[in-house]
């Protein structure tokens, strides 16, 4: 049986799918990929379904090998410096990785996080309905933890398929301002706080991970106390502790919490936040719920339509294109497999 072998997981690599829903009532974190478009695209490029699991990596993707036969893989999420045995391969496309070759994923200028999908997917049992990893509680993914060098992830059999690419026009455009819907506890803040939230810009602090991003910028003042009786927390929730400095809660958010939540970033804009890290400057704008739903439905349709946009991969990145052939020593002997 085939396997993906981790030579180097990079800064943080975890197995993630679209998240673990239905168990928040028991305190189980949803988790899932931070950038759902990147996950969807990676799965589609290797012929996996929308519910497939991929490796989400951070900053650099590290190095991987395959065992047991060639397999199609794809790296998405940004313009990552992907190479196979040192030969560059384009991101946002699938290509074949062969036993003995080393896939290396370096940093991207435009994204902190990316996804690596493998055709067929990982032969990892779902836990509570999902293969997503939540490291803090040790649930799901590969042994409930981040990947380590030497891990050998078994692969499920893959259907045959060609090497595909996502046209650049299909890539998500980064919004200038992240869009917010006010609530659920905007009533705990005055108009000044809402004006401060949308008027200035915020920096992502060093305290930024899959659970949430602590921001630094104009302080948001509570009208009353800074504690509420703990209640449910949505993806993208902007909670405001006593300091007045907001915290955006993301994939690994805890299901309940006790700070007032002034607003919620809409789901389609979460990926843009996931792609930036500490030091990034972000700004917000408030939209109405009807507009948020219209944007969300269009985004859902775009995600569902990703497989239809794929086209056969051509040009740089194809391991059998002219670049690769030129890189081989054609005079010295037969073309190696």
């Amino acid at each position: 049986m085939g396997a993906l072998v981790v030579q180097d997981p990079g800064l943080l690599a975890t197995v993630q799918d679209a998240g673990r829903f239905g168990w928040q009532r028991f305190g189980v974190v949803v988790a899932g990929a931070m950038d759902l478009f990147a996950l969807r695209a990676a799965n589609a490029l290797v012929g996996n379904g929308a519910d497939g699991a991929a490796i989400e990596f951070t900053f650099t993707g590290g190095r991987y090998e395959v065992e047991g036969g060639p397999v199609r893989v794809a790296v998405t999420g940004g313009a990552f410096a992907v190479s196979v045995d040192g030969r560059p391969v384009a991101p946002w496309r699938s290509f074949t990785l062969r036993p003995g070759e080393v896939l290396a994923i370096g940093p991207a200028p435009d994204s902190l996080r990316g996804c690596l999908a493998v055709a067929g997917g990982f032969d990892i049992p779902p836990v509570l309905g999902s293969r997503s990893t939540h490291v803090r509680s040790g649930i799901g993914g590969w042994q409930g933890r981040a990947l380590r060098s030497g891990d050998r992830l078994p692969l499920l059999p893959a259907a045959a398929g060609g090497e595909l690419e996502l046209p650049p026009s299909a890539l998500p455009a980064a919004p200038d301002r992240l869009r917010l819907v006010l609530g659920p506890q905007d009533g705990h803040f005055g108009e000044e706080a809402i004006a401060a939230l949308t008027g200035g810009s915020y920096q992502v602090t060093a305290d930024a991970d899959r659970m949430g991003y602590r921001l630094s910028g104009p302080a948001l003042t509570h009208l009353g106390g800074d504690n509420i009786v703990s209640d449910g927390i949505a993806l993208g929730s902007v909670q405001v502790p006593a300091s007045g400095q907001p915290i955006v809660l993301l994939a690994d958010r805890q299901p309940t919490g006790g700070y007032p939540k002034i607003a919620t970033i809409i789901t389609p804009d979460i990926g843009a936040l996931a792609r930036v890290g500490p030091g990034a400057s972000i700004a917000f704008t408030v939209i109405g719920l009807a507009e948020a739903h219209a944007i969300r439905r269009a985004w859902d349709a775009a995600l569902a339509g990703v497989p239809d946009l794929l086209r056969p991969a051509l040009g740089a990145g194809n391991l059998y294109d002219s670049e690769r052939l030129l890189s081989l020593d054609l005079i010295g002997g037969p073309i190696p497999d």
């Binding site: 009532r25 609530g183 659920p184 449910g232 993806l235 919620t264 789901t267 739903h293």
Partner: peptide, 29 residues
Amino acid sequence: FLPAGDAALTVELGDSVDPVVNRRVLEFD
């Protein structure tokens, strides 16, 4: 009924830790 983004809402039945309020929440659920 309070919106919590494009995919969630919160239905608040009270604002304190109280067994009567909590029983209503659980029956509602």
